[in-house]
Nucleic acid binder design. Structure first.
Length: 118
DNA sequence: CCGTTGACGCCAT
DNA sequence: TATGGCGCCAACG
């Protein structure tokens, strides 16, 4: 039906699930790729979440800046409009970022498996 | 088809 | 906490 699909429909479904979870991240909070992947049932699909973020970069409805790696490091900042965009957006939401790393990460960390708790 | 790359994570040191 | 090595999975050339 869509021979020119950029990604397989199976993956498209996975991407959509990722976007849905990311949208649920409240302001001032952040989550990690691994937590999202795990919540979706792909414990080893953390890298796929990152790939999904790259595809969602065009969408404004997905706060990709609220997704960091498990160490709280802004590993994806280079993929935004400018390398500063991600850090600036997080600071705007009250998150302290220093040297490309989130401070008090345990306090702003938001885990879907716990917050959504289902 | 094969080798490399990458917005990751876990384990060992 | 920091660094290095290994594993996973999909996309790319």
């Amino acid at each position: 039906m869509s021979p020119s699909n950029k990604i397989s429909e199976k993956n498209k479904d996975f991407f959509d699930q990722v976007y849905q979870v990311v949208r649920l991240i409240p302001e001032g909070k952040v989550s990690s790729y691994g937590a999202i992947a795990r919540y979706l049932g792909s414990a080893r699909g953390a890298r796929m979440v990152g790939w999904a973020m790259n595809a969602c970069m065009n969408r404004s409805d997905v706060p990709a800046h609220r997704v960091v790696n498990r160490l709280g490091i802004l590993s994806g900042k280079m993929h935004f409009i400018t390398p500063e965009t991600m850090e600036e957006r997080l600071k705007t939401e009250g998150i302290i970022v220093e040297n490309d790393k989130i401070q008090s990460f345990d306090e702003v960390y938001w885990d879907p498996a716990i917050e959504l708790e289902l």
